[in-house]
Design a protein around this nucleic acid. Structure first.
Lengths: 105, 105
DNA sequence: CTTTTAGGTAAGTTTTGACTTACCGTAAGC
DNA sequence: GCTTACGGTAAGTCAAAACTTACCTAAAAG
């Protein structure tokens, strides 16, 4: 079930880079934070947003928390976009057919 | 070339509904605005964001401007997500192989 | 030519969200 | 036990984004 939240999660520059890095390799919060100029708590907050959106998941490992991309979340977004694309395609096909265009919704 | 802007465009509740409606059928600004509780200028501003992100395009029709989904824009997002998904898959496969997990980036 | 319809843009306000510092809990190591 | 490393959460600040009203231009209709 993809909604606004999911897209909002990827709408931020830092979160974009976070998920990019996690896609290459699962990482701990501290290790992740070391690549950024913002504070560690800021990274934690970004991870919460990504987690709430279902785009990442955590696994505890001793005192560390290892974050990784949740592939299902990505797949769900893809599916949503597929739907949009197909609908737009159908609408386009219909519009091409009935060249008498009314605007009445 | 999908970036933060593209996701930000779909990160808003109203823009989400706008593109949903446009996917069903291309619509004029006024016709679109009639379905929302916010003002018409607000809709115009949202359409600008969507347009700048390459997700919709306009066609002038007399005094009206008909907005429709730009399928290429949607396709580009899909491609981006594919990349993420594949990278995460590779990372997962590698992690499964080398069960000795180091955190050194 | 005047009027109406359609919609983009500017300026100002309010709401949201990204950051900071400070603090607290938990697991491992001595 | 105490201490250190790792991170989540709270409270407050500042900037960005989403609205509003007011205004202006362009095409069609009379």
């Amino acid at each position: 079930m993809t909604n606004t939240t999911t897209f909002a999660a990827l709408a931020d520059k830092h979160r974009h880079e976070i998920i990019q890095r996690l896609a290459q390799k699962p990482l701990s919060v501290g290790s992740l934070a070391s690549h950024f100029s913002i504070s560690r708590p800021a990274i934690s907050q970004h991870l919460k947003v990504l987690s709430d959106a279902g785009l990442v998941h955590v696994r505890q490992e001793g005192t560390r928390r290892i974050y990784a991309v949740n592939r299902q979340g990505i797949a769900d977004m893809r599916t949503y976009l597929d739907g949009l694309w197909n609908d737009a395609f159908a609408a386009y096909a219909e519009a091409a057919q009935t060249l008498s265009e009314k605007d009445t919704p």
